[in-house]
Amino acid sequence: MSVLVFIETFNGQPVMTSWEALGAGKMVADALGTSVSAFVFGENASAIAKQAAEFGASKVFVCDDATLNDFRLEPYAALLTSLVKEHTPKVVLAVGTNRGRELLSASAADTDSGMITEAIELAVEGNTVKVTRPVYAGKLLSHAQNVGDGTLFLTIRGRAFKPNAQNAGASAEVVTVSPVLDESAIVTKVQSFEAEVGTVNLTDAAIIVSGGRGVANNPKEAPAGVSDPTVWKAQDAFENVIKPLADVLGGAVGASRAAVDAGYISYAHQVGQTGKVVAPDLYIACAISGAIQHQAGMRNSKVIVAINKDAEAPIFKMARFGLVGDIFQIIPALTAEFKKRLGK
């Protein structure tokens, strides 16, 4: 009746937020008076199991079968479901990444278990796990909890929980398990993978610099012959004004829905109700007015800086620091100042 945590991997490396899941898992396990186990599947699983031990797992289930190298739901869910049926953990926990959400939901359905996603706070009372989670696109919070004695499947939001301190040399009991499906029984075949190059994942980023529709006011002249000068100016602003600031801070580039819908930057960068929900340490909103849909995606940022030429923009009501002015003058000055002060 332990707590079982998914250590997500990609290309044989652990996805770093998995250690946050072990941190949350340890906390829940301690409160339930039990221990925390982990499971790692695919390439390099045994080596990653050692790291899981250092981050607090007392037991690790390992399966390094080749069918599990690329994440595919069928073999992953079949194996997790068999582990859950055999060991009946009280809680199965993962970070709510694409893989984490899909895998835990599938296994919850297979075992007719309860499932709660996107936890931002966790508490335990007796046998009940009490979960605080955002609903209505971040406009409200709700309290949810397990009913009955079965396994609860739980995903946590990235950056909401801290990893345990790494204890170098700590070891765990390693249990090697066999895959449930062999390749001939798996209908999904991976054809190719195209990595997103040079981008920092928004949900993992500690610092985000975001641009809104106003980036199209770029004073730079679009070259003759471009089909849409406004789009060119906006794309140039993201590349040569917003991104350099994000780069000097080691941060990621975000955008408002208005900027994405206008074709200024790809959807992968959208923050807000129909984009990504983020909670970085620092969020710099450049030429973003702060519509309620955008606020829903970034209101939990620790420090918000708003830069906008309109002093009445709603974004200033939620910002810690506000700068009224032209982003095309302020941001280059800010980038230069950070370079100087951070010694870059």
């Binding site: 709700s142 309290h143 009913v147 506000g322």
Partner: peptide
């Protein structure tokens, strides 16, 4: 097997915005 027991409004964040003025270089 799982249930929502309550909904809550978001806690009001006490953010006092501090406006930073001056030339762009001074603001930065």
């Amino acid at each position: 097997k799982a249930e929502t027991v309550a909904f809550m409004n978001l806690p009001t964040k006490e953010v006092q915005v501090e406006m930073i003025t001056g030339t762009p270089e001074e603001q930065a």
